[in-house]
Write a protein that binds this DNA or RNA. Structure first.
Lengths: 140, 140
DNA sequence: GCCCACATTGAAAACGGTTTTCAGTTAGGA
DNA sequence: TCCTAACTGAAAACCGTTTTCAATGTGGGC
């Protein structure tokens, strides 16, 4: 199934309507292999549905985030970008040059978490890991 | 040496003046064992130096961040908080209840990074790890 | 200890991203 | 096809952050 259809299905399944502007946002997210800011998503969405408003972009991003279909990623200079999240627990590797992003889910932090827990006394319930680097295309 | 003095030394060493408002911000940061937002730092700083402006708080935070003495921490709902960073590479464990924070530096991600690098083709140059949980005081 | 250059300050205004408001529009089940 | 609740876009509100600028304070030199 196409990524766009998967996203559409996710929304439809929860009773949300599939309007033209929403579909435009889904298309953009499905086509992008990189992290995108709301503004950039808005710009691209207009080529699919001319009158798409920035407000609708934000609202759709909120919906998809709540569904777990996308995830906010945090760059050094702020946390304004979104990336597809293929469900379940996963993390992202982000290219510092072209912003391209891939997921990975084999985050085996068990040993580390246990050590920190023992040392600090904190009962750790969640973690957050993001990797930065250069994708194969951006290497010199 | 007191934390406040360490911070003051860091600034003085680089030729920055130690003004009353700046000292107030340092005091607040040194006394807080938790992550603080600029607004909260401002509120507290006023009890040390009455007329401290929010602008000065931001400017001082920028200086200290540039020096590596503090670090911006990223919560799920935004990245508006700062925490002391005792120099060098380190990460934070943050209490989801009271925002208290402790550092840990034994982040042995070597194996994980190598695996991801091999699997994705990305040349990984940096990472970012934050742990969330409950501190000993906030556990039921 | 006093002076002076210049870094630093605070108030207000500007700024940019995000959210709310609200009247008009649209999707999709009956 | 019709109807209603969900959805929409434009504008305004909002909020955290940055810039501007004239006034002030620090700390090195004397």
């Amino acid at each position: 199934m196409l990524v766009e259809d998967t996203l559409a299905h996710t929304l439809a399944q929860r009773g949300y309507k599939l309007t033209q502007p929403r579909r435009a946002v889904l298309k953009v997210l499905a086509a992008a292999g990189a992290t995108l800011t709301p503004a950039e998503i808005h710009r691209r969405a207009r080529s699919h549905c001319l009158h798409t408003g920035l407000v609708t972009v934000y609202r759709t991003l909120d919906l998809l985030t709540a569904c777990g279909a996308i995830r906010k990623v945090h760059h050094a200079d702020g946390c304004h970008a979104y990336a597809l999240a293929s469900g379940g627990h996963a993390h992202h590797v982000i290219c510092e040059c072209c912003q391209s992003v891939v997921e990975f889910d084999n985050c085996d932090l068990g040993t580390l978490l246990a050590a920190v827990q023992r040392r600090t006394g904190y009962q750790i319930s969640g973690h957050w890991l993001e990797l930065f680097g250069l994708c194969p295309n951006c290497r010199p």
